[in-house]
Simulated assay, not measured.
Amino acid sequence: MNSWQRVVTESKQSLLQITNRVRVNSVKGFLSLVLVGMSLSLAIAACSGNSSNSATDNPSANKKRDVEVTLVSFAVTRSAHDAIIPKFAQKWKQEHNQNVRFNQAYGGSGSQTRAVIDGLEADIVHLALALDTKKIEKAGLIEPGWEKEVPNNAVVSRSVAALITRPGNPKGIKTWTDLAKPDIKVITADPKTSGVARWNFLALWNSAIKPGGGEDKALDFVTTVYSNVPILTKDAREATDAFAKQGQGDVLINYENEVILAQQKGGKVNYVVPDVNISIDNPIAVVDKNVDKHGNREVAEAFVEYLFTPEAQQEFAKAGFRPVEVVAQNKEVLKEVADRYPKVNNLGTVQDYGGWDKVQKQFFEDGAVFDQIQSKIRR
């Protein structure tokens, strides 16, 4: 029997002896019992404190319970996150003596958005466009103002639009204006169903606006380009398959990072990055309702912050994404990888057109600009 157990046992025996000797309904007896009870409580508390101190001497006693985090992202970020997550987990372990396990789910940004809204309990979402994140916000899962909680309006990875051509570029496609030529067949997905295709549409519209054209000129140009689209696929993957596997079209509009990733896997891809382009911005957000439910907000927010560090941005660069410049140190990352990315001198953003809420309403809702364009085209 150790010392604190002896103290507790002796105190209990004293209490029993007093109980047997005194009548509780007398004032003296009542006070005696109270005093003994207080002595017993103090003895137990003091001895318990000594026990805690001895546990502190054992490092394993301070180890926190493991924590799980669920990350839901769009497909082409997988290689970057697979490299980033182990680095973050090691850092967190060193600083907090706690293991972090990540559950990961990848797919099309639109389908991932629907899955989270329908019940996939993501703690963090990294999606292709802020419009998808906004949908999760409107479903009540993310608190408004998430864009301001981290750097760069929450844009953690970015790319630009690229024009992928046939080997040797037999049609001589170099700029957006080439897509309006009558003998060019353009492959892209339907912006009504594909997030990537919304970026493609905005890149085309921006290419007419940025050099000084008005909305009428942009409408005419984009209408001409879409009249050269033989089929609108459901999503970006189907568009790529139609171009690469089925041999349809002369040019495919796609993300630059997809092209770089394909080259890293051994593919030979002919492509052009137009000098007038759109910044394809991919936001990150903590899913407030789920992290509060899971009790893992601290680690989820720390991971999101970590994604903006040079270490994480280097991994995004390896996966074909252009590093974000918001963190001063990331400018060094940009210098290191500058030769991978053609310089874009005239880069537009979705903010130039009022943000995604306005863009969605103006271009992609039923009866909006894209539907008007389609009504003019006979396929």
Rank of each mutant, 00 (worst) to 15 (best):
M1P: 01
Q5D: 10
Q13N: 05
L16F: 08
K28M: 11
F30Q: 06
L33Y: 06
C47F: 09
S48P: 02
A55F: 14
D57A: 10
P59A: 05
S60C: 02
S60M: 04
K63Q: 08
R65H: 04
T70D: 09
S73G: 12
P86Y: 00
F88C: 03
Q94C: 06
Q94P: 03
V100T: 08
N103Y: 09
Q104R: 15
E121Y: 02
V125A: 13
W146K: 11
P151I: 00
A154S: 09
A161N: 10
A161M: 06
L163F: 06
T177E: 13
D190N: 12
S194L: 07
R198S: 05
L202E: 14
K210D: 02
D220N: 12
T223S: 13
T224F: 02
S227G: 14
I231E: 15
T240A: 15
F243K: 03
D250A: 01
N257K: 13
A262P: 00
K268Y: 06
P274L: 08
I280M: 12
N282H: 07
V287K: 04
R297P: 04
R297C: 12
E305R: 15
F316Q: 01
A317R: 00
K318D: 15
V324M: 13
Q329I: 05
E336P: 05
E336V: 10
D339N: 08
G348Q: 03
W356F: 11
F370W: 01
I373C: 01
I377P: 13
